[in-house]
């Protein structure tokens, strides 16, 4: 991992110095070892001082490019395979200008979840030593070795692909094992198997944890409206008084419909949720439905294809034909 970080830094400095780009979008250290944060670097000095890449860099940098579009010049961005899907989707929706972006695709062995590490009884994390499947977590209380697969982020456990779908060049040192795509929808299938009442109870219990911090919306690469309906007094649904406790949770239902067909399943919503609500499952259910009703479709796999929900073909399913028991 250290080797990759060094290669990334060298590449960033090279591109800054030869004038290809005038700034770099990457990660920098946060207050703790495990809370690396997206950041813009403008010089070689800044890169050398604070650029970081380790297994706590799960954050998807694509969305930050939307804001960066307003600034002059070309920007270098480091994207993991899954992040490139979000990038493509943003290109498709004209939210970023591809000509002003230089993408370096980077190796990803799956990123780690501090929650999962804490669940293993490890606190006070100050470093990592990675050796294939084995990860040694260094903490102020000593070192402990765990299996990578047990402490990965949910979005990495159900990784959709290890293939970069957009890049100018790649930094890959070690082989990246292909993801098990079947695993991705297993939890959705479990929910589908429930009765309507059970499923309602499940979501009611999960969504009731929501504190409306808006983190899921703010991090979502598909949520890039200039004026969000929930912040817009004109919309009639902002800060609405709720008839019952569950009504506010319609926020998530509305938001998931908002991103349906555009969501690449990057998993950021669940990663950032401070209440650990499995928000990705709502989106993934719609992705599964789209796949079943309109044929396999992966948002962000390319920048040209028509999205099934906004394109009509005569082979589209007839309305109502999906209304089977338990679906």
């Amino acid at each position: 991992m250290q080797r990759i970080e060094n290669l990334m830094k060298a590449k960033a400095i090279e591109l800054l110095e030869n004038g290809t780009v005038n700034r770099v979008l990457g990660w920098t250290a946060g207050d703790f070892y495990y809370d690396n944060t997206p950041a813009i670097f403008n010089s070689k000095e800044e890169i050398e001082k604070s650029f970081v890449y380790n297994s706590f860099c799960g954050a998807n940098l694509s969305k930050y490019l939307v804001k960066e579009r307003k600034n002059e010049g070309k920007i270098l961005v480091f994207l993991k395979p899954c992040d490139t899907y979000s990038f493509n989707q943003l290109v498709k929706e004209h939210r970023v200008n591809k000509d002003n972006i230089y993408i370096v695709g980077i190796e990803c062995q799956g990123h780690l979840s501090i929650e999962a590490i804490k669940a293993k009884g490890i606190d006070g994390v100050v470093g990592l030593e990675e050796n294939g499947e084995e990860v040694t977590v260094k903490s102020i209380y000593g070192d402990k070795t765990v299996v990578r697969g047990e402490v990965m982020l949910e979005k990495c456990l159900s990784c959709k692909s290890k293939k970069h779908v957009a890049y100018d060049e790649l930094i890959i040192v070690n082989e990246m094992p292909e993801a098990d795509s079947m695993k991705r929808f297993s939890k959705v299938a479990e929910l589908e198997a429930m009765t309507a009442d059970e499923r309602f109870a499940f979501w009611k219990s999960e969504l009731s944890k929501c504190i409306r911090c808006n983190a899921c919306r703010n991090v979502c690469p598909a949520c890039t409206c200039t004026k969000c309906v929930f912040d817009n007094p004109e919309s009639g649904v902002d800060a609405k008084a709720n008839a019952d406790k569950f009504e506010e949770k319609l926020f998530h239902i509305i938001r998931s419909f908002h991103v349906t067909g555009r969501c690449t399943d990057c998993g950021e919503c669940s990663r950032v949720c401070p209440q650990n609500i499995p928000l990705h499952l709502i989106n993934r259910k719609y992705i599964k439905d789209i796949n079943e009703f309109y044929g396999e479709y992966q948002a962000g796999a390319d920048t040209e294809s028509k999205a099934p929900l906004t394109a009509f073909t005569t082979s589209d399913i007839e309305p109502g034909s999906n209304l089977k028991e338990g679906k």
């Binding site: 929706e93 004209h94 890039t224 200039t226 004026k227 817009n232 906004t310 394109a311």
Partner: peptide, 12 residues
Amino acid sequence: SMCIGCGTCANV
């Protein structure tokens, strides 16, 4: 003031 120019409306 609200349009983000995403192209969805022209598509449909």
